[in-house]
């Protein structure tokens, strides 16, 4: 009865953990990215527990010292420890970017899925709305939103979420659209699922792998965007520790030779963006069940 039918049964079952390990071992760059990501998350969570100094405490006697055994990343113009400030800033920067990306992912997915599934006038309306956002230079739009709504962390999050929304909406629309008439969507309709159930339970989960790549790339942009806003004086205000502000403040001292003020927060920023950009491929492989064999 079973000629080829038993061939699949020989394939051993592996758990999700085994799958993650396989993806990491197959692609060393993904492993590096996951390592960096884990480091960033741990630093963000532990934050205050691992800083050697109070990040806000100034000490005029120790101003502008170069990196040393006492102060690994040196001190700034009012004698605050740069290492502690870089560590503390991780949590704020991560919070802003995660919240902003989560918000644009949720709203963008809903808007894009609806446009992709029903098409017609809904597609036209959401399409033009998204085009309108895309028509602005995105960073200038974010500046405008923060300037108009007020200089707070929440507003940075909203601004970052709004400028990233179109990317999610477009990916979700395209991914849903190609699956709208797929066999499994038809089968789901026959199984008594309503349109919303077909979309939310059957089609959308299949659009997740490419969305994951988008999320990971976007996290990098979101961090850069938040830091950029702070750099030009919008958003987070001194003396709060934030990578963008620290680079902005440190930039004044680079010409006079105190390179460490801008260098270390800039390095942290670079590592974070780098890690998120590399994470994408690995994340896609992990959420795609077809990669599991």
């Amino acid at each position: 009865m079973a000629l080829a039918e038993n061939s699949a049964s020989e394939k051993a079952h592996r758990g999700f953990g085994g799958h993650v390990l396989y993806v990491l071992s197959e692609n060393p760059i993904t492993a590096v990215a996951f390592g960096l990501f884990a480091l960033i998350v741990i630093v963000a969570i532990l934050g205050p527990l691992i800083t050697p100094y109070d990040p806000l405490e100034s000490n005029a006697a120790r101003a502008l010292q170069a990196p040393s055994a006492d102060h690994w990343f040196g001190t700034d113009s009012v004698g605050r420890d740069v290492f502690s400030r870089v560590i503390i800033a991780t949590r704020l920067d991560m919070m802003i970017s995660v919240a902003a990306v989560a918000l644009s992912f949720v709203v963008g997915s809903i808007v894009g899925s609806i446009a992709g599934y029903w098409g017609g006038w809904m597609d036209a309306v959401t399409g033009r709305f998204v085009d309108t956002i895309m028509a602005f230079p995105l960073f200038v739009l974010a500046m405008g939103i923060v300037a108009a709504m007020g200089n707070t962390v929440e507003n940075i999050i909203y601004a970052t979420a709004i400028i990233n929304l179109p990317f999610y909406a477009r990916v979700a629309r395209a991914e849903v659209r190609i699956r709208r008439e797929a066999g499994f969507a038809q089968a789901a309709r026959l199984a008594g699922n309503t349109d919303i159930q077909v979309l939310a339970l059957h089609i959308f989960p299949n659009a997740l792998p490419p969305m994951m790549v988008q999320i990971s790339l976007n996290m990098g942009w979101a961090i850069l965007n938040a830091a950029g806003l702070s750099f030009i004086g919008l958003g987070v205000r001194p003396p709060t520790a934030e990578w963008g502000i620290m680079v902005a403040e440190g930039a004044n001292f680079v010409v006079s030779g105190e390179w460490w003020l801008a260098f270390f927060p800039g390095l942290a920023l670079m590592i974070a963006v780098f890690a998120f950009n590399l994470l994408g491929d690995g994340l896609r492989d992990i959420v795609d069940p077809r990669q599991r064999t």
Binding site: A182, G183, F184, A187, H202, N206, R290
Partner: peptide, 22 residues
């Protein structure tokens, strides 16, 4: 999809691979 007669009418699709949610 919500009609009681939905259960009486069902279908076996051409391509089993395409018709089962991955």
């Amino acid at each position: 999809a919500r009609d009681p007669r939905r259960a009486s009418l069902q279908m076996v699709f051409q391509d089993a691979t395409d018709s089962i949610n991955p």
